[in-house]
Design a protein around this nucleic acid. Structure first.
Length: 951
RNA sequence: GCCCGAGUGGCGGAAUGGCAGACGCAGCGGACUCAAAAUCCGCCGAUUGAAAGAUCGUGUGGGUUCGAGUCCCACCUCGGGCACCA
């Protein structure tokens, strides 16, 4: 009779071999135990989850980016980040930290609503189902979340506070003098007291109630504006700048987006532009993420300059431009306005009217993107009018061209063709003058193969950089000869301000945040409008304003290309809900509700705060709890989450919005740290091989065969590429499948061992078994595979093994501190391989081994911990500490280099001084042979490292 | 075009300026077995050599250094972000 063959994953002849099946059995058992014992409940310093014992315990807040509960469940990218944070959290529990670690769901948003529209099932139902499903999957991974702190943004108990924060933002204004947000009531006081002038100078009391409301609305951090917004007919809603891709489409759904003037809610994030840039310096984030945020905010320092013009009607007016190069004002030889600039009509002469009208018509039919992408050949037309260059009085022509964008700066530029490549091209295209105002260095001319000249007709392109100014003086300003741009700018700015022609200023690419969506599945705005159309926020006692139930939750969507369609929010249809009678302090009156909902980003702007105090019904967070988990730290860190792990795709969306909200809450005194996320770590993507057939269609990656390095699917040749694992590339491996075959502990180990956390890495199913084998060996080194009991034949501890143990403890600790999980695992494997060679794990160090494995493979560790005779969970055991005495070696082997090549190795006492090491090296046989009698000219001894001889 | 980041065996990857390739996968050899699987032991960059060894080797070309995968300069390739931003 033949015996069944055995693979590492399958059941074996050994009843207690650590197979996938046994792992599974162990893991499910421990999930129940952890739940039943509340193992991961984390106490607060106060409140319902409070426990006075935590007061003197150091805290650690570990956070994963808020997952969206997709109907497809978890993909492999989730366990990658989640395992990393779980290991970190578990490790730090073992170092005595009080660790806050949980997970909730960012459950509002378009996908749930789109799914609901397809199926006709209310999004609340599908959302709840999806969350339940994902909770099951998370549990399967053995993540040590405090389940009491899990929240969903769609829970009225949560969005009650999202709405409350909105009212805080609405009822605030930004004081640019104090650079802080303040309650709007203080602005009213300043206006009323006359310490702050009203916009038109009239005393505050003389303004009508409606005029007062208008003034306040102009200051609020959340405000309604009629402005160009991104209208996406295919989604039936407007979207934020950050949600529009580089090719002008919605990042959700990939529909065309059009610029339209619409009345929408905005958040005055631009007020915080400076602080959002400057405070990046406080954060432990990667340079690349910081660079992306700086780039998006796009701070540029320059000046506003006024150019006088006379309109066709004869009136005097000014064109204000923004420039980063005020120093080049002497070289401004024409001006260019955006086609939409409000002064274009007034400046267009009758002769040019038809040309200008035609150009503007063409420009208006092109989207922003088409204007930028189509081709870079400059187009434009002359208005017929001239402006006066304030610095030299010259009359310069005013053109319009679509390379000038209305959305940036003032929508008008001064063109300095000799110093700006775009202006240079435009001038060449239309034969406009290019006066030289800098003397480029000889090297610049040499580079372009021409002789030095100030005749720009010979120049192939504009010169940008530091070089002495020429032709740059008037009666009261002379920058000629100055050769650095910084000084030139400073001098010119001083002149502009002294003569009233402009002033130094800072401009940003960042726009205010478009905050309303014409959808159903989001937080309703806690806002009503009175009969004059002014907005009022609902008082606290009327929160939450719950999303009204309806079967008609689908927004009206349009032909994706129908730019002129208009949004219709689903809430508009609920007239009984929209019309409401309320007493807001001045007697019952009729009001109209706001029918927009907030964007999905709202709920994720503050969720980490709610994790701290999830059950608080009196406040969004208790101040004492907030200070404990989020406050500034004794070591000087400014506070916030201690470790935040997630994908890089949120670099300018969530991370910018959340920082903004947090700063408003900070300014208003609701939180104690200026930043929400102190240390940010961006995980890489899980990639996987994907295969395309000859038509370019993706084929199921799991049906592909490899023969002689070529790949075939159903006999047909296919081409291989690597891409982000997912449904669209037909190459997704579900975490559940891997747990089922190998167990969660093996999956966790594999994900962590693939490489550094921040690198993207290709998934290789065949490699997973390596980590099962490792765990299997750990098990076998302690457990009798036939009885399941602790082995009775464990070897005695020897000195060598003891030293390896302590070296491993030391290395694993420092690797975990640095999030180097891959090398930590390698060190554990080395230790375990040494134990295997020894014939098992000596009982004296078994506890150490199990405790070190615990953060990585917690289920296996719990099981072994029991077998070692302990009753408690491993969770709060102390992580082993290396004995420094066992880290030092008695003797060490050093390489000896001769002229940079390793020629020999010598063994010397670890404590040997340089002279002794040198003597030992020179005495070495091979060294002597290599030297062949020569005397080294130089000897470099690096203690503990190397000996280097130079002959 | 501009700004980040990365290029190391067949593959994933490791290496405070100091012995390149830890650890895992794959492969090769051996032990055990009637046999296979599993397990355990060993080998595993290239060229050369019977072997000891020698020479070369971290995208390319220069440089700094006693010594460079690591630092500097230039370039090439790939990935990410921004892109007529005045």
């Amino acid at each position: 009779m033949s015996t069944a063959s055995e693979s590492p994953t399958s059941e074996s002849q050994h009843a207690f071999r650590y197979s996938g099946a046994l792992a599974q059995e162990i893991e499910l058992r421990w999930h129940d135990w952890w739940d039943a014992n509340g193992t991961f409940h984390t106490p607060n310093p106060a409140g319902p989850l409070g426990d006075p014992r935590v007061a003197d315990q150091p805290k650690l807040f570990v956070l994963d980016m808020f997952p969206y509960p997709s109907g497809a469940g978890l993909h492999m990218g989730h366990p990658l980040g989640f395992t990393a944070t779980d290991i970190y959290a578990r490790y730090h529990r073992m170092t005595g930290k009080n660790v806050l670690y949980t997970m909730g769901f960012d459950a509002f948003g378009l996908p749930a609503e789109q799914y609901a529209v397809q199926t006709g099932q209310h999004p609340a139902i599908t959302t709840d189902q999806n969350i339940a499903n994902i909770r099951t999957q998370l549990r399967r991974l053995g993540l040590s979340h405090d389940p009491r702190r899990s929240i969903s943004t769609t829970d009225p108990g949560y969005y009650r506070w999202t709405q409350w924060i909105f009212t805080q933002i609405f009822n605030s204004w930004y004081d640019t003098d104090r650079t802080t947000a303040r309650p709007i009531s203080e602005l009213v006081q300043e206006f009323a007291a006359g310490t702050r002038a009203t916009p038109d100078g009239r005393p505050w009391a003389e303004l009508s109630a409606s005029e007062q409301a208008d003034v306040l609305d102009d200051h609020r951090l959340a405000y309604i504006s009629e402005a160009p917004v991104n209208w996406c007919p295919g989604l039936g809603t407007v979207v934020a700048n950050e949600e529009v891709t580089a090719d002008g489409r919605s990042d959700r759904g990939n529909f065309p987006v059009f610029k339209r003037n619409m009345r929408q809610w905005m958040m005055r994030i631009t007020a915080y532009a400076d602080r959002l840039v400057d405070d990046l310096d406080l954060l432990d984030w990667t340079d690349s993420i910081k660079a992306m945020q700086r780039n998006w905010i796009g701070r540029s320092e320059g000046a506003r300059v006024d150019f006088g013009v006379t309109t066709v009607g004869g009136a005097a007016d000014v064109i204000t431009v923004f420039t980063t190069r005020p120093d080049t004002l002497f070289g401004a030889s024409f001006m260019v306005l955006a086609p939409e600039h409000p002064l274009v009509d007034a400046l267009t002469t009758p002769e040019q009217a038809a040309t200008v009208a035609e150009y503007r018509r063409q420009a208006s039919t092109k989207s922003d993107v088409a204007r930028q992408v189509e081709d870079k050949t400059k187009t434009g037309v002359f208005t017929g009018s001239y402006a006066t260059n304030p610095i030299n009085g010259e009359q310069i022509p005013v053109w319009i061209a679509d390379y000038v964008l209305m959305g940036y700066g003032t929508g008008a530029i001064m063109a300095v063709p000799c110093g700006d490549e775009r202006d240079f091209e435009f001038a060449r295209q239309f034969g406009l003058p290019i006066p030289a105002i800098q003397q480029p260095p000889a090297s610049w001319f040499a580079e372009h193969g021409i002789d030095p000249t100030l005749d720009t007709a010979a120049w192939p392109q504009a010169f940008v950089g530091d070089a002495p100014y020429v032709n740059s003086s008037n009666e009261s300003l002379d920058v000629n000869g100055i050769s650095d741009v910084a000084t030139g700018k400073r001098r010119t700015n001083e002149w502009l301000e002294a003569n009233g022609h402009g002033q130094a200023t800072i401009n940003y690419k960042l726009r205010d945040w478009l905050f309303s969506r014409q959808r159903y599945w989001g937080e309703p705005f806690p806002v009503v409008y009175d009969e004059t159309g002014h907005a009022h926020t609902l008082p606290d006692e009327l929160l939450p304003l719950e999303l009204p139930p309806t079967d008609s939750f689908s927004p009206r969507t349009f032909d994706p290309d129908d730019a002129m369609s208009n949004p219709e929010s689903p809430l508009d249809r609920l007239t009984d809900w929209v019309r409401v009678e309320l007493d807001l302090g001045d007697g019952p009156k009729r009001y109209r509700r706001d029918t927009n909902v907030m964007p999905q980003w709202a709920g994720s702007c503050w969720y980490e705060l709610r994790y701290c105090d999830p059950t608080n019904e009196d406040a969004f967070i208790d101040p004492e709890v907030e200070r404990y988990w989020m406050g500034p730290q004794p070591d000087g860190r400014t506070g916030g989450v201690d470790l935040y792990v997630g994908g890089v795709e949120h670099a300018v969306l969530h991370l910018l919005y959340a920082r903004f909200w947090h700063k408003v809450l900070f300014d208003l005194g609701h939180v104690s740290s200026p930043e929400p996320y102190h240390r940010l770590f961006n995980q890489g993507y899980i990639l996987a091989a994907a295969f395309q057939d000859e038509r370019g269609m993706y084929v199921d990656a799991f049906g592909v065969e490899e023969r002689d390095g070529k790949h075939f699917s159903g006999g047909e040749p296919v081409t291989r590429e690597y891409g982000k694992m997912g449904k669209s590339l037909k190459n997704a491996v579900a975490p559940d499948e891997v747990c089922g075959e190998y167990g969660a502990d093996t999956l966790r180990l594999y994900l962590m061992s693939m490489g550094p956390l921040d690198a993207s890495r290709p998934w290789e199913s065949k490699d997973v078994v390596g980590m099962l084998r490792f765990l299997q060996r750990v098990w076998r080194n302690l457990v009798d595979e036939d009885t399941g009991a602790l082995r009775s034949d464990l070897p005695a501890l020897d000195d060598t093994t003891d030293r390896i143990l302590h070296r491993t403890i030391d290395g694993v600790r420092s690797d975990l501190e640095g999030l180097r999980f891959n090398t930590a695992i390698a060190k554990l494997i080395e230790l375990n391989n040494a134990l295997t060679k020894l014939g098992g794990c000596p009982r004296e160090i078994a506890d150490h081994l199990v405790l070190m494995v615990a953060p990585f493979a917690p289920h296996l560790a719990e099981e072994l911990w029991r077998k070692l005779g302990h009753d408690e969970t491993v969770t709060y055991q102390s992580f082993p500490v290396a004995d420094p005495a066992k880290l030092v070696q008695d003797t060490i082997e050093l390489p000896v280099q001769i002229n940079g090549k390793v020629r020999s190795r010598i063994t010397v006492p670890a404590a040997a001084d340089a002279a002794a090491v040198e003597a030992a090296a020179l005495a070495d046989e091979k060294v002597q042979a290599s030297l062949a009698g020569a005397t080294p000219k130089k000897v470099v001894v690096v203690p503990g490292r190397t000996v280097s001889l130079v002959v």
